[in-house]
Design a protein around this nucleic acid. Structure first.
Lengths: 271, 271
DNA sequence: GGCATCAACACAGA
DNA sequence: CTCTGTGTTGATGC
């Protein structure tokens, strides 16, 4: 459940499903994913009522009135599931909320995830979320001039590193970046300063259209949503298609190391 | 006048020459090499008497009693010269001290240098000198176990970078490092973790012997001391001898880029 | 596939 | 042949 489309889809589902439910208890199997001691976590959640769920980048924000905000990051491939009253919780959960009506919300991470709560008044000092960058699906804040300036300010940084830095744009990870760069015909290591205006416009458009499209499909087909249903996005152009033909020119897709992450590129189309 | 042998030689000469002289006035042509405004610099120097001159790394420390310490770094190829009463000062000086007895001490830098003064009580907060590493000519502090641990602590750093980092060992620059690495048969980019014990011992011995030898000769032949006399060290093995034969195997010495500095190596002997 | 931290490296500036 | 900051990259661990 990693990147913006999955996270936003989940937040939208949670917003529709959980509004009005009151936290009756917390079920913590792995305390180290909490940002505060369990007792403090309980104090800030139990007895409070979910009134709104939103997302920014890879983070889900759930308002727990009065006065708390719950913050969730599912890391690499984690899941959040809602459970009707009486349903057993998954054995592999790290944390779960039990609501007053008998329903529950469980979280499972296969590697690392963050289950945080902060007093809403202190939300701005929550380090992992307070510095998140622009929302690429918000046309007001992710405006073209801001994007253009961002690339100017980091002229000698690889374009992939810029787009994946959550402080710049929030929500692009190592999955969606692959086809975004392919569609913009950019090599991941191209320096931002060498990306000319026409390419920048193409890239800007592709970022918005790809993420919007994936969101409309409910995210990736190999991820599960709040109701354990897979998303509909599965047709990668080059991402994770090592050795398969480029859909444009037929050249075999290469998997290369780009810094510490892997990239899938068409060596002919992306320069 | 750059590295440890020249700086220590200069400090020894200054110690013998200047003890007891009182600063009568300061002559500042280039105020930007000072660490404080000229008025403050004068306040901390004029009327005070040199009582001791020492060195650590590439820095000269002159105690100006009561209460001040003068700190000098000649940068790349700067000079410090003493002048008898009545002698004119060099036109190219950036700064000079005039002493009460009519003598003077002038400083010239061909690129950048530092002419600092601090209250002796605040010496430990002078950033550029407070973190200087071990004195390689002091057998007590530059002991074998400390050197061995240093290389363990920086396993994946190039050996040249470690030796030239003034925070580790103080006084080795891009001149003496050349023959030190050649004599130890080490390629400059070799990772410290790959330098085995026998090589480490050889390197440790070479650092001490080379610097000691150069100090005994009064430093480099192309540098001038306090009395404008050149040093006696000129017989580089590979340093600055690009294309000349390696003294051991006859292979042509190569000049290569190692990070941001140049290195002269025998490609056969140094691995 | 996440994020933070630290070390290493490159570059510009003085 | 100086040293310092800044920004970027890479490895590590949770």
């Amino acid at each position: 459940m990693p990147e913006l489309p999955e996270v936003r889809h989940l937040a939208l589902q949670m917003d529709g499903e959980l509004r009005g439910r009151t936290v009756a208890g917390i079920d913590v199997v792995q305390p180290k994913c909490l940002n505060v001691p369990l007792s403090e976590f309980e104090r800030l959640t139990v007895g409070r009522t979910a009134t709104k769920v939103t997302s920014r980048g890879k983070w889900v924000f759930m308002t727990l009135d009065p006065g708390s905000t719950f913050l969730l990051n599912l890391g690499m491939g984690g899941e959040a599931l809602v459970h009707a009253k009486g349903e057993p919780l998954p054995d592999n959960r790290q944390v779960a909320f039990r609501f007053g009506d008998g329903s529950a919300l469980s979280f499972h991470f296969w590697w690392f995830g963050y289950v945080h709560v902060v007093p809403s008044a202190e939300l701005s000092s929550h380090a992992m979320t307070s510095q998140l960058g622009l929302d690429p699906l918000n046309d007001v804040e992710f405006a073209w001039p801001a994007f253009d300036r961002l690339l100017d300010a980091r002229k000698r940084t690889a374009i992939k590193a810029i787009l994946m830095d959550q402080k710049n744009i929030a929500g692009i990870g190592n999955v969606y970046i692959q086809d975004i760069l392919f569609a913009a015909r950019l090599h991941p290591m191209r320096k931002a300063g060498d990306v000319v205006s026409e390419e920048r416009h193409a890239l800007y458009d592709v970022i918005r259209s790809q993420l919007k499209h994936a969101l409309e499909l409910g995210g990736l087909a190999y991820e599960k949503d709040l109701y354990n249903q897979p998303g509909g996005f599965k047709d990668f152009l080059v991402g994770y298609r090592e050795g398969k033909p480029c859909p444009v020119c037929g050249t075999a897709v290469q998997k290369i190391k780009t810094g510490s992450t892997a990239s899938f590129i068409c060596p002919m189309c992306q320069t």
